[in-house]
């Protein structure tokens, strides 16, 4: 059981990394013509949390959404096609990288406004409660989202009304180029501050996928059993620039040393080493898994490239549901 879990978690991590790095490689072909926020380096949180969710649980995400979509099981052909602006994209070419959706696996959507999907998760949780279902709704956001008023409004409401929501804060230290030091008081931990609202909290190392999974599994269990919201904060780091395919350690807002420090804590390599040490898997099995995923990702890019663009004709009739 745990063996299979670990292999599945590894697959998620490697798939996210491969998709993101392939986007980075191909971005300068300029076929992906939309703002694209890559998750490389942050795979551990997405994979660990989603591994703890059931297929029919719900997930929302923000602008940096690829990892969450893939980790929840979203169709990567439709995701890449969406970034390519094609009619076969998950949002039919109308949303782009920041607006992914795959309802078939409970990934209800990602949006670009910081904090924008936090109340949506509470709303879905309210509907779940009204329908007497046991589903959990999870929303991913970054450290800047806790600077938005809607975050406090939502946590306050979720606590007051015992809504089954899992709030996941990925603290990667930066909002675009603005470090935490200019945005939040020194020596105040996010999870401690949020605990003051009355919600149950925990925190952990986001670059240890197994720790993320175990903390999430524990939280999801409590949410289902007690019908309460829980807030988890995980520390992590984005390797590439805020938006786009490049590295930006040379432009002055962070240092190469800091980047290398976090690169040492690569969640994918960390977990791969862990599985090898624990003899969950051997080197040849790893290579075989990787080869399969690389093929799948390449095929997804080919599919996106080969797909047709959507037609503008008649699209104004798609603004309203009739």
């Amino acid at each position: 059981m745990e063996h299979t879990l670990k292999i599945n978690l590894f697959k998620k991590l490697f798939k996210i990394r491969t998709v993101e790095e392939t986007i980075a490689d191909k971005y300068t072909e300029w076929e992906m013509r939309c703002p694209t926020h890559l998750s490389t380096g942050q795979e551990g949180v997405a994979a660990g949390v989603c591994q703890a969710l059931e297929d029919d649980d719900f997930v929302f995400s923000s602008h940096r959404s690829h990892a969450h979509y893939i980790a929840k099981g979203g169709d990567i052909r439709k995701m890449i096609a969406e970034i390519y602006g094609k009619s076969t994209g998950c949002s039919a070419g109308r949303g782009g990288s920041m607006h992914l959706i795959d309802k078939s696996v409970g990934f209800l959507g990602s949006t670009s406004i910081v904090g924008g999907t936090i109340p949506l998760a509470a709303g879905v949780a309210l509907s779940v409660k009204l329908k007497n279902s046991s589903q959990v709704t999870c929303t991913f956001f970054g450290d800047a989202a806790v600077e938005e008023g809607v975050f406090y409004e939502t946590i306050n409401y979720a606590v007051t009304n015992k809504l089954p929501v899992l709030f996941i804060c990925e603290n990667n230290l930066y909002s675009v180029y603005s470090p935490l030091s200019v945005r939040q008081p020194e020596n105040r931990n996010i999870f401690e501050m949020v605990e003051g609202i009355g919600i149950s909290v925990d925190h952990g190392n986001g670059n240890d996928p197994w720790e993320v999974f175990e903390k999430s599994r524990n939280a999801v269990g409590k949410i289902r059993e007690l019908q309460i919201p829980i807030f988890l904060e995980f520390s992590t780091y984005r390797w590439r620039e805020h938006c786009g395919p490049f590295f930006d350690n040379d432009i002055g807002y962070r240092t190469e040393t800091e980047f290398l420090h976090w690169k040492e804590k690569d969640p994918l390599q960390f977990f791969e080493n862990m599985l090898l040490e624990q003899r969950v898997i051997d080197e040849s099995q790893i290579q075989s898994i990787k080869a399969g995923i690389i093929d799948e990702v390449n095929e997804a890019f080919q599919f996106a490239h080969d797909s047709d663009f959507p037609d503008f004709t008649g699209i104004q009739n798609s603004v309203y549901h009739s």
Binding site: F58, L108, G116, T117, I118, P119, L120, A121, A122, G123, V124, A125, L126, S127, V128, L130, K131, T137, G149, V150, E153, T154, N156, Y157, T160
Partner: peptide
């Protein structure tokens, strides 16, 4: 009270909560 209820003074979140609930049939 499950279908008719007062709320905190949190207009933005309460609107998002309405949207979220509506995505699941409410």
């Amino acid at each position: 009270k499950d279908r008719v209820f007062d709320t905190p003074a949190s207009e933005n979140a309460m609107t998002g909560i309405a949207i979220g609930a509506s995505l699941n049939g409410i």
